[in-house]
Design a protein around this nucleic acid. Structure first.
Length: 577
RNA sequence: CGGGGCGUGGCGCAGCUUGGUAGCGCGCUUGCUUUGGGAGCAAGAAGUCGCAGGUUCAAAUCCUGUCGCCCCGACCA
């Protein structure tokens, strides 16, 4: 492959685009890889298209190597497929919906479980056909509430999604492990730094699940990390170690105190310490937050009170993850529930009111709390779990903080941000059940198929690589995804450009992918800046040393420059691949 | 959906407070010079100032409305 800058469809920009905030967005636009068309929708220019294809190629090679078979489904889908699994409703505003001329409902596929399931069902029917793994690399559409950060979160994006179909749970585990291995190879080859973390399966349903998160300051996912034992989990999926239950006997009886004007934890703690000489902290209080929980397809809302230590907020993401597919909204209509006194809610009365009460795992039997007394201006102290109130269960909804206890080894957890580049999970039989996907077993009885679902953000990976691989001068592509292996710059008033073109041809013949800057009458400074911005891993400058038969070889990663004989430079470059 | 910011040639921006010929840098075109760090000189092309209505002799500028975009949050395989 030989690309000539004199004719390459490329325009680099000297300034950062005004609408870009994150490095990958700024650089991919400035370096002429992508252009914005609409919010969250981007065009790929020649160099960007090459990088995107390179990422797709790596993904494809590793998927094939693990035995996956590539298929391609349409992005434009009729409603029926999503109706059967309830997701036409479940996905809400997040899918692009459209109508054909006859008024039929269609959507642009946000994900393709239904199609894969249906295809396997219609083609395969014997246990002898399984296991099988199918995948596709395809454009997905999601009408995100807020696309952001260039191609890190778009409304149209390229994704590899695959699905494994197995006869039993052991088979599913094997397929899952195979994918995990393949993903490790993929992301290693792409030069990405990433962390594999425990995850929740979200709206997709299913059980075992891990995410591949690329740590970046601009990441949208928060995850915890234990530097002692290696435990890592998405904040949504972190489990809180529950302390051992304590004895209730001998604890002082609960007592109601007048605490006028203390509707918040802060005012309450302040009041009790000042007026009652208690010396408590927010962590000694039990905060009770009321939510309305709705489930897809139903318009009835169920009330739920969540109890967390008063020094912690309820984390909306964790709550949603814990309730999925239910959705929680803050309850505001206190006039409809006279039993719940805003600012003074305590769990003592919830059983009688018939309201479900779930607590943070730290609220174990025998712990005593300062909490609401269900009367305006009154709180109660020494309210003991298991004696004065009986929760309906626990829920992982309290915010996670750096320094929290590792659920595996008890050390302190650290908190980092990352971008999800891959997600693998054992889906189980949700979609197989919806589609009645069975294989006929050796005994003539049907066996329900169990599925795994696995995704790689292909276009997102391009942006994440840019996020992780750049410096103040521009992009620095890992060779495997770079638009070319070498960037040859011809600059000077003699025959430098001619020589650069000759070398480009020679290297191309030896199997390298070459980009040559053969633009006449462009000043050296511009060519150097462009080479740095574009970010090919190796730069060869044919310039002022030409008369002496010398070229300058630059390593874009290390910044190292050396003047060496041209012939030697060519050999060195040829030896890179 | 809540909060903040912004809409002026292809890109980045000034002008708006105090109404009066639409400007700067980059990029683009032509010519000459220049060629190791985003060159110089000269001459050009290109904008109904997001849109609609209003005030006014006169609106990029003031008023009202509206649309769009960006950022933070909510939301989100």
């Amino acid at each position: 492959m030989l690309l000539r800058m004199s004719s390459l469809f490329l325009r680099t920009l000297r300034d950062d685009p005004a609408d870009a905030e994150v490095p990958s967005h700024k650089l991919l636009v400035r370096a002429g890889y992508v252009r914005r068309v609409a919010p969250g929708i981007y065009s790929w220019l020649p160099l960007g298209k090459i990088v995107l294809e390179n990422v797709a190629r790596v993904v494809r090679e590793e998927m094939n190597r693990m035995g996956g078979q590539e298929v391609l489904f349409p992005a434009l889908l009729p409603r029926e497929y999503y109706e059967a699994t309830g997701r036409w409703t479940e996905y809400g505003d997040n899918i692009f919906r459209l109508r054909d001329r006859k008024g039929g409902d269609y959507l642009l596929g946000p994900t393709h479980e239904e199609l894969f399931t249906d295809m396997v069902k219609s083609e395969y029917s014997s246990y002898k056909d399984f296991p099988v793994t199918l995948y596709q690399i395809q454009t997905k559409y999601r009408d995100e509430a807020r696309p952001r950060a260039g191609i890190l979160r778009g409304r149209e994006f390229v994704m590899k999604d695959s699905y494994s179909f197995d006869l039993d749970d052991d088979g599913l585990k094997r397929s899952y492990e195979q994918h995990r291995e393949a993903y490790i190879k993929i992301f290693d080859r792409l030069g990405l730094r990433y962390k594999i973390v425990f995850a929740t399966s979200g709206a997709m349903g299913g059980s075992a699940s891990e995410e591949f998160l690329a740590p970046t300051p601009t990441g949208e996912d928060t995850f915890v990390n234990c530097h002692t034992c290696g435990y890592a989990a998405n904040a949504e999926a972190v489990t809180t170690p529950a302390p051992a239950a304590r004895a209730i006997e001998g604890l002082p009886a609960q007592q109601v105190l007048d605490t006028p004007g203390t509707p918040t934890i802060e005012t309450l703690v302040d009041f009790l310490n000042t007026n009652n000489g208690l010396g408590i902290t927010a962590a000694d209080t039990l905060k009770n937050v009321v939510f309305k929980v709705t489930y897809p397809g139903s318009d009835k809302a169920e009330l739920l009170v969540v109890g967390v230590p008063g020094d912690r907020e309820v984390d909306a993401k964790r709550l949603e993850a814990a309730l999925a597919p239910g959705e929680a909204a803050i309850f505001e209509e206190f006039h409809k529930q006279p039993g719940l006194v805003k600012g003074y809610i305590g769990p003592q009365v919830l059983k009688d009111l018939g309201i479900r009460y779930l607590v943070d795992p730290r609220v174990v039997t025998g712990t005593a709390w300062v909490t609401g007394a269900n009367e305006a201006g009154k709180h109660a102290v020494n309210v003991v779990a298991g004696r004065d109130f009986h929760p309906d269960g626990t829920i992982e909804a309290a915010e996670v903080r750096a320094g929290d206890t590792c659920p595996r080894c008890g050390s302190e957890l650290s908190l980092d941000r990352g971008i999800e580049i891959g997600h693998i999970f054992q889906l189980g039989r949700k979609y197989a059940d919806a589609a009645s996907l069975d294989a006929l077993g050796p005994d003539g009885k049907p066996v329900r198929i169990t599925m795994g679902s696995y995704g790689v953000g292909v276009s997102r990976s391009v942006a994440v690589i840019a996020e992780q691989w750049h410096d103040e001068l521009g992009l620095v592509w890992p060779r495997e995804v770079a638009p070319a292996d070498v960037h040859i710059v011809g600059t000077g008033k003699d025959n430098q450009i001619e020589v650069a073109l000759q070398l480009a041809t020679e290297l191309e013949a030896r199997g390298l992918r070459v980009l040559v800057d053969d633009r006449p009458s462009v000043s050296p400074g511009v060519k150097f800046k462009d080479a740095e911005l574009l970010g090919l891993p190796t730069i060869l400058v044919i310039g002022r040393g030409l008369a002496q038969g010398v070229a300058e070889l630059r390593d874009r990663v290390t910044g190292e420059k050396q003047e060496i004989p041209i012939a030697e430079a060519v050999e060195r470059i040829a030896g890179l691949v």
